[in-house]
Design a protein around this nucleic acid. Sequence first.
DNA 1: GTTTTTTTAAAATAAATGTTTTAAAACGTT
DNA 2: AACGTTTTAAAACATTTATTTTAAAAAAAC
Lengths: 192, 192
Amino acid sequence: MGRPKSYSRDAVVEKAMSVFWQNGYKATSVSDIVRETGLNTASMYKEFGDKEGLFSEALHHYRDHIIGPRYRILIDNPNMSGVEMFLRNVFLGAAKKEYKGCLMMNHLAQKNVIGPDAVKQVGAFCAEIESLVETALFNAQSDGEIGPEKDVAQLASFIVFCVHGTVLYGRHDEKKHMIPKFYDMIMQELRS
Amino acid sequence: MGRPKSYSRDAVVEKAMSVFWQNGYKATSVSDIVRETGLNTASMYKEFGDKEGLFSEALHHYRDHIIGPRYRILIDNPNMSGVEMFLRNVFLGAAKKEYKGCLMMNHLAQKNVIGPDAVKQVGAFCAEIESLVETALFNAQSDGEIGPEKDVAQLASFIVFCVHGTVLYGRHDEKKHMIPKFYDMIMQELRS
DNA sequence: GTTTTTTTAAAATAAATGTTTTAAAACGTT
DNA sequence: AACGTTTTAAAACATTTATTTTAAAAAAAC
């Protein structure tokens, strides 16, 4: 049934994700993408509809393959030790990341530049991760691992902010020394 | 001699800075700028040469009017109390900022998108503020206000990272609760 | 081997964007 | 009021960018 594709959809999406991650949506042209991925322009439109469709796939890929696995540990362990493992993993992993920041968070302030679908996707993602952390903290509170007087929702957003806004967003990756400090700070805050 | 300008250069630069700050260099078109500033296209090219020239002026304005005054306190007091006043000022001021992040830091990872002059400007700015903090910390060390065993250069970059990467970069401005926490964390780190 | 289906390469189109030009309007100077 | 200079408005131009079209190439199905 027809000529087979000469490209791998997954490989294209992954490469496109890298480019979008590196430059941002608006600063990435379709030409950039076809150059970097080797994908043919027509094939790109056939496969993804338009530039935003590909960006949307890139966001999915990011969620499923880059950030998702990091949160997996928190899904499997929605409790204090899950939070601790999650943070240790993220804070240590931050040093070896290729690109800077969180692809989603990087586009959070660009609602007028990325399309409405992407805006929704980013919003849903933020709500999702915050909820994950919140649930784990809530359970930790039930288990008596963090004080009953703590504002769990507030702590959750604080943690998400630190993780995505600062550590994943480590533009200054040469300054790795701050990473264990943030880890200590958060754990101290949780335990105090 | 000749028709006087109907615009104020300063007002134009300030408005342009806002737009660049809000959208980023690449996602801001010259049309956006002339619409927002009311400046005539030809006047813009006469006055600033090209888009990058205007961006460069915007960076200068940001440095001189937005960030500069924040660091003034550190220039006038290159010592421990200067650091403390500076941090308090920045951390409290962060809540009321109109736009998100540091205009310079926002473009740090966009070396291929902004022109070479702007890249230099951003680099110089980063070196400059780091040096300011470092000098103050060095003096604080001489004064015996922070321990002699502290790595002052490391602390300086940590502080700059926190201030610009996190607090000024407060995309999540609804989560203001973390601001005093960062302040406490840094002061505690300095004093411990 | 012909047909059928789909990909691909390259050119074509259309819109946005950066920049320049042209001529008219505005103002100070004489 | 005429002159010289500069701004301004609008159109023109060139380039980039997103998207579509066209026809040739490639492989599967019959």
